[in-house]
Amino acid sequence: MNHFEDVIAQVEKQGLSRTLKAIENDKDGYCAFRGQRMLNLSSNDYLGLATNAQLKQDFMHQLAENPSWLFFGSGSSRLLTGNTSLYDEMETALKNWYKSEAALYFNSGYHANTGLLPALSEKKDLILSDKYCHASIIDGIRLSNAEHVRYRHADYDHLESILEKRRHLHQHVFIVSESIFSMDGDAADLKRLVAIKEKYNAILYVDEAHAVGAMGQTGLGLCEQQGVTSKIDILIGTMGKAMASVGAYAILNDTLKQVLVNKARTLIFTTALPSVNMAWSKYIIDKMPSFNNERESLQKLVSYCNGKAKELGFEPSGGFILPFVVGENDVAVQLAEHLQRKGFLIFPIRPPTVPKGTARLRMSLTANLKIEDVDMAMEEIESFIHKS
């Protein structure tokens, strides 16, 4: 066991130690942490729906009228007895919302990303992924038999140069990107990616985890905002962020869905989600197009905070994920602790989550935050920087 003690000691020496934290959600963008009420600046609940009491009350009324939903365990995988009618209703709702051929529901975004690419790709294939793709995508690619090359972050000329040299050597080529990148908050140029995939006869795979619900006229995400929803071959959306639930889904065609039902290990070999979770997810999906007020409130906050970040000398992301890159691990930790003492819940993000030398605070903006409250956090960041 000494080896593992040495591992922990090395992690602590590098300033990379992580711990699990008990945090209780409160209303109006606040939470309780270590006995203190804090403004929650670390949540991915972008529309503030997870703490919306009225939504919860309305759903509970529906639950009372549908006792068959009230099961807290499914007891089986979807391919055995866990695939209740709510799964079918949910996938139909998703298919109709996206105007797609098919949808397939997974237990989480991690399950989706680690299941799809290994099931769909083969040795003769090539996967080209943005260098800043999420760890779940990287793990999925590692589980596949395809060759893998990363292109420089958002460098589509680099992506094309790889395709020009290598497209003819492979059966299928998958181009993989997030739409909103989780650590930098910047947006992919999906129109450019669509044009590239069409030019080189590739398959475009886009993870909309941080965009779906929070962006687009009806909440379909960056793909809707950029007008390319129907042109993305495989689109991943997650329910655990702006959708205030659990699980994830893939939007794709009927053929790919059937391949996944037969080959995706993260679908086949895991217990299905309980009915009560699927009922809540369906409830949220049905209501999602109507949350325009929340999306507008979020956008106002985004505009203000990005302007403020620029004033402080940071590179604004333009979105609702704001990275305050400070460089060194200890500086990020000290700044986070300073903000927590002042009543703002925000955490340091350090390697290996982000590249070495780019430790940061990652501020997540949500629709239930007030500008004046977030402004106070910005002032504390400014004060800390000037003292350092």
Rank of each mutant, 00 (worst) to 15 (best):
residue 217 Q to G: 15
residue 208 E to R: 02
residue 202 A to D: 05
residue 109 G to N: 09
residue 231 K to E: 13
residue 121 S to N: 04
residue 142 R to N: 13
residue 126 L to P: 00
residue 128 L to E: 11
residue 211 A to C: 09
residue 213 G to D: 02
residue 200 Y to F: 12
residue 140 G to P: 02
residue 110 Y to A: 12
residue 188 A to T: 12
residue 174 F to G: 05
residue 157 D to Q: 14
residue 152 R to M: 13
residue 214 A to N: 07
residue 206 V to M: 06
residue 193 L to S: 02
residue 145 N to F: 11
residue 133 C to L: 04
residue 190 L to S: 06
residue 146 A to H: 05
residue 115 G to Y: 02
residue 228 V to I: 02
residue 238 T to Q: 07
residue 199 K to N: 10
residue 181 F to H: 09
residue 138 I to E: 03
residue 172 H to N: 14
residue 206 V to A: 08
residue 112 A to K: 07
residue 172 H to V: 04
residue 178 E to I: 04
residue 153 H to P: 10
residue 179 S to E: 08
residue 166 R to P: 14
residue 118 P to W: 07
residue 150 R to D: 15
residue 217 Q to D: 15
residue 179 S to Q: 07
residue 211 A to F: 00
residue 144 S to T: 06
residue 173 V to S: 08
residue 154 A to K: 15
residue 109 G to W: 03
residue 197 K to L: 05
residue 211 A to N: 07
residue 219 G to Q: 08
residue 192 R to A: 14
residue 137 I to A: 08
residue 138 I to R: 07
residue 212 V to M: 01
residue 148 H to C: 10
residue 163 L to C: 10
residue 234 I to D: 03
residue 145 N to T: 11
residue 214 A to E: 08
residue 147 E to Y: 02
residue 202 A to C: 15
residue 130 D to G: 08
residue 155 D to A: 07
residue 179 S to M: 06
residue 180 I to Y: 00
residue 176 V to W: 01
residue 215 M to Y: 10
residue 117 L to T: 08
residue 123 K to L: 04
residue 193 L to R: 02
residue 158 H to Q: 12
residue 203 I to P: 07
residue 193 L to M: 09
residue 163 L to D: 08
residue 223 C to M: 15
residue 121 S to M: 06
residue 183 M to V: 14
residue 154 A to N: 15
residue 236 I to C: 05
residue 117 L to W: 05
residue 189 D to E: 13
residue 139 D to G: 14
residue 185 G to L: 06
residue 207 D to W: 03
residue 142 R to E: 10
residue 178 E to K: 12
residue 153 H to M: 07
residue 154 A to E: 15
residue 226 Q to C: 11
residue 116 L to N: 03
residue 207 D to T: 14
residue 170 H to N: 12
residue 163 L to N: 09
residue 225 Q to N: 12
residue 186 D to E: 14
residue 236 I to E: 03
residue 131 K to I: 09
residue 174 F to L: 11
residue 207 D to Q: 09
residue 134 H to P: 00
residue 150 R to F: 13
residue 193 L to W: 03
residue 142 R to C: 08
residue 157 D to V: 15
residue 222 L to S: 08
